[in-house]
Nucleic acid binder design. Structure first.
Length: 415
DNA sequence: CCTCCACCGGAACGTGAGGAGT
DNA sequence: ACTCCTCACGTTCCGGTGGAGG
């Protein structure tokens, strides 16, 4: 126990730790330069450029899957724009950033904007979290903006989640923001919407779309070569020299992430986890072995997370599958699963749902990748779904056991 | 070739919680 | 305080179906 720890601390003392700047591998980090996104940066830059001359830029919609650099490019260009304006002695545009997945409502979006541009209540205090009519906070924002000529650039990250949560409300927010322009005398607002969902446009109100979607910028996924380039760049700043054992490590990370539809965030996450793993073990270098291990860790973590956050009914269904699998059954049919589920529900004293509903829950578990199902016909003996656990029994068992309600019955049932 | 099992999965409807408007 | 909507979650009802066995 003492020895490896001793060794580990020694490493830190000698400054031989693996990381130089771990934070540069986190998704929030904006690097000095962004490879392979010249085209997108160019587009956004040329659209925002007029802001330097005091002219309002068009609104922009950015599309692309997760980890394709949308957010980071937006941040990067804005940062540059602001600093350029400052250098030239021009009032810089007000750059604000709102993540719509976290800040989910009309009011809170406005509140965030007020905070970021320093709009306050008439008495100078901060805008309250709640309690004001939405109209009022809107006019506070307007007043502050119009006090002097400003250009406000609003980045709405993950706008699609806004509309997904509530189509009407989402459209309302966007509509009220775009419309605010015509109510302002001195200032202008321009919006950069960022969306993961390519179909996002379809559910958008046409009035909103016509103003919001003036310009569109597409972010394609990175391919394996590009991912490798990005990794190489980050490795230089994130890790100490020689901390990566060989070229193969980066290639492997790149290849694994490329399989995940070119998600750079995943790639960097994988690299960081691999580094942390190596560090924790007191190894001097990150090897391919660490990367593979890290892949497993990440996978396991996401599975654990999805199972944990499952509603109790779904857990009960999963438990039923697990119980049957533990009895050595490889293939489980809906009927059997339902019977066991009924037992479990009884013991848990929760409502016993109908088979129809359970059938849907089973499909959901399939979508989440926790089980695999195929519809098969057993001829004379009917048509049903063949269910299999998609993950290790051991892992499912331990996670389900963490739920107090289920851990009680696991003994009862297996007895 | 037909039958008929045991479920699939679509559709319409019921219910209660939570928000927005008034 | 009140009504009106919308949603998520469930239920009921039911037509549909691949293929083993007659």
């Amino acid at each position: 126990m003492e020895k490896p720890l001793d060794k580990l601390f020694d490493k830190f003392l000698q400054g031989q730790a693996i990381f130089r700047q771990r934070n540069t591998l986190r998704p929030t980090y904006v690097p000095e330069d962004l490879p392979y996104r010249d085209e997108q940066m160019g587009r956004i830059g040329s659209i925002l450029g007029p802001a330097l001359r005091g002219a309002p830029p068009s609104n922009i919609l950015c599309y692309g899957k997760t980890g394709t650099g949308k957010t980071v490019v937006a941040k990067y260009v804005l940062k540059l724009l602001v600093s350029k304006a400052e250098q030239s002695g021009i009032t810089p545009p007000l750059a604000t950033f709102v993540n719509c997945r976290i800040v989910g409502t009309n009011y809170r979006v406005l509140k965030r904007l007020c905070d970021q541009i320093g709009a306050t209540m008439p008495d100078g205090s901060e805008v309250p979290f709640t309690g004001l009519p939405t109209d009022e906070i809107r006019s506070i924002l307007k007043k502050k903006l119009d006090a002097e000529p400003n250009i406000l650039v609003v980045v709405l990250d993950e706008v699609d989640s806004l509309v997904k949560r509530d189509v009407n409300q989402g459209n309302d927010i966007l509509y009220s923001l775009t419309r605010m322009n015509s109510e302002l005398e001195n200032s202008r607002i321009s919006i950069i919407g960022i969306s993961n969902d390519l179909k996002f446009k379809e559910v958008l109100d046409p009035r909103v779309l016509s103003t919001l979607g003036e310009e569109e910028v597409i972010f394609p996924p990175y391919n394996a070569v590009e991912l490798k380039g990005i990794l190489q760049q980050r490795v230089k700043i994130a890790f100490n020299e020689g901390a990566i054992s060989d070229e193969g490590v980066i290639n492997l990370v790149g290849a694994l992430a490329a399989q995940e539809h070119g998600d750079a965030r995943r790639a960097l996450d994988l690299l960081r986890t691999a580094g942390e793993l190596a560090e924790r073990r007191g190894d001097e270098q990150v090897s391919q072995e660490h990367v593979r291990e890290a892949q497993k860790v990440i996978e396991r973590d996401t599975i654990t997370e999805t199972v944990k956050t499952l509603p109790l009914q779904s857990k009960a269904v999963l438990f039923a599958v697990y119980a049957l699998a533990s009895e050595g059954k490889r293939d489980i049919f809906t009927g059997e699963c339902y019977n066991v589920y009924t037992e479990i529900a009884k013991i848990l004293s929760i409502d016993t749902l109908t088979q129809r509903r359970i059938s849907d829950l089973i499909s959901e578990l399939d979508m989440l990748g926790l089980i695999n199902t195929t519809v098969i016909s057993k001829g004379r003996y009917g048509r049903t779904k063949k269910i299999r656990l998609a993950i290790g029994k051991r892992q499912i068992g331990t996670i389900l056991d963490e739920d107090v309600r289920l851990s009680k019955i696991s003994k009862e049932l297996l007895a």
